[in-house]
Design a protein around this nucleic acid. Structure first.
Lengths: 343, 343
DNA sequence: GCTGCACGGGAGAGCGCTCTCCCACACCCC
DNA sequence: GGGGTGTGGGAGAGCGCTCTCCCGTGCAGC
């Protein structure tokens, strides 16, 4: 009487057994339509709500999944708050995509940050306790140890972006090479002939592939040699890289930066050297992050379908939860070019 | 053997009863230190992890709480994704504050959006199913029906910002009047004598209080009449309001807008009318949102301690979960002035 | 008419945990 | 020494659900 009605109460009201009510609710096996109707009425009249804990106890499924933002922000020592991770709209787009897919299924992500070893331990414990059936991992660095740990713990997980170390985990990613090719084609279409690139760190896939893709595409346009300066995806490194490229070739008229932050730094360096953008030098970034819009001029950039990718992560994760031992898969999405004022 | 060890396994390994192991784990009642040590060893050697579902079933606590962003974005019909809510860094700050408080307690928020009636129903069902013990609600409109529904459902909840309709629910808020006073004092200190204000909608607390607080403060500075134009917290409404204020007094030299978006609109209108900011007209906003930094010149604005407020929401919610029937309380935070280039 | 079998329903055994009883024992006071 | 009191541990009853087993019924096939 205290608390909400249980299956037993509904069963009594409908004059059937607990098992039958359960069958109606879960749509398992055939139940006589007449009885079904009776049960539904009892369900409604009692205002029954299934107890998730009881259900989880026997099914060994929590029906929940974790959305883990991993390796985010090293500044967590400074303040008690985990990170400024949502300051980057990228994570907002991921959250949006995940929720968009999961919500119609009645499942809602548990938000976790894992930027320290301690936090990673918490995530693992949490998964092991069965609070969540699996995790969607969004790492900020390619060398994040969490994916490996989760796999080791035997919990289903899906990664955003190919892991640096090959580990048996499903992931979604964007076709970096295609994106770089879009940038190259665009610069060529804009009539640029002396083009250089600011690459990302060459020890991570995104860095390697964007550089290789750009060079390959430029080669097919008849430019076999493209100067490159390596950055590390930060704004300052982009600025420094641009300085080096300008020193090497003061007459360059096009630059592809492997992400928007570095492009932003490049714009700064170009301004500093009196180059007009896009008149003197066209600049193309990658990611379509907030930085792209904050730039002056607004940045032409390569955009991933982040929401769709996130939704796919959800789908993949559920597949792995449904079918443990399922083969890992990767799904690669095609990026698009967003043309703004910098090219 | 299959699956993880249970309490029973640990008890067997330690040569005690299940109850004793449970006592050691939960720190309930005295247990002989020697036995305690034995149990701890057994715990470690078996690699025991408590099953949260089983625990929840008996304690009637999920140990989880929901972070609900409510009434967000009306554009949800357009695309399958819930909202662009995280595009506003405000929500990121809230998430950060909540996580910063809850994580040390080993609890992690379940992220939910409730921008449609259907989504609100899902939130209620979710809470009723016992998936979460309570909810932290962040509404985008003051007239959001969700807080009332949650209270009605008898689930603990804490609100960000005072609800428009008085309902028995705890909330945190910022001292709008104090914030408005900070803006007033600042404009006076900058030597402004012909000051006007763009208010928010006067049917919501934030709109009313910021206007009243501003006028009161200006009155104490010897300015009994402050022209006001009402906006609705959007950028366009701010621009329109500024036009009206300029028409009424072309010689004004200071403006307080009740939020940053409207301030941004005001800047646009001022620029359009050839006024220089801050030389001719000083502008102060409210919220310290992303818009404040995106403005040109960067906006002087009133900032809430959002992270601290969010953390307090977590604390309040847990108190309500611990002690059902606890009296509702409100906690009001003091804002600070962030001086930038617009004043 | 009997067996075989599909079908629909009930009984009841857990899932892993907490928590209330209850009991054994040691200790104290009068 | 008897009775009270406290302390530490075990037994076992559930929490609400799912799911396997089993049983009764109806119907086709030989």
């Amino acid at each position: 009487m205290t608390g909400s009605p249980t299956l037993e109460d509904v069963a009594r009201a409908a004059g059937v057994s607990r098992a039958t009510v359960s069958r109606v609710i879960n749509g398992i096996r055939n139940v006589d339509p007449v009885i079904q109707e009776t049960v539904r009425e009892a369900l409604a009249s009692t205002g029954y709500v299934p107890n998730q804990a009881a259900r989880s106890l026997v099914t060994r499924r929590s029906g929940a999944i974790a959305l883990v933002v991993s390796g985010a922000g090293g500044d967590s020592e400074e303040h008690p708050f985990p990170s400024k991770v949502f300051a980057d709209p990228f994570f907002g787009r991921v959250a949006d995509g995940i929720v968009g897919f999961l919500r119609p299924l009645g499942i809602h992500p548990i938000l976790m940050f894992a930027e320290t070893a301690e936090a990673r331990g918490q995530v693992l414990t949490y998964l092991r306790q069965g609070n969540a059936d699996g995790a969607v991992l969004v790492s900020t660095h390619a060398d994040d140890p969490l994916p490996g740990l989760v796999v080791e713990a035997g919990r289903p997980a899906v990664l955003f972006a190919r892991p640096f170390e090959p580990i048996p985990i499903s992931y979604v990613d964007v076709a970096h090479r295609t994106g770089a090719k879009l940038a190259a084609d665009h610069l060529i279409a804009r009539g640029r002939t002396r083009v250089a690139t600011i690459s990302g760190p060459l020890d991570v896939p995104a860095g390697q592939d964007r550089l290789a893709g750009f060079r390959d595409a430029m080669a097919t346009h008849g430019h076999p040699y493209i100067p490159a300066a390596e950055g590390n995806f930060t704004r300052d490194s982009g600025e420094a890289a641009m300085e080096r490229l300008l020193a090497e070739d003061p007459g360059l008229d096009g630059v592809f930066a492997a992400n928007d932050l570095m492009a932003q730094g490049a714009l700064q360096a170009l301004r500093h050297h009196g180059r007009r953008v896009p008149d003197d030098v066209a600049v193309v970034g990658f990611d379509d992050s907030s930085a792209a819009l904050a730039c002056r001029p607004a940045l032409t950039t390569v955009r991933h379908p982040v929401e769709d990718m996130a939704a796919e992560m959800g789908r993949l994760l559920l597949a792995h939860v449904e079918e443990p031992g399922r083969r890992v898969t990767s799904i690669i999405f095609e990026p698009t070019l967003v043309v703004r004022d910098s090219s």
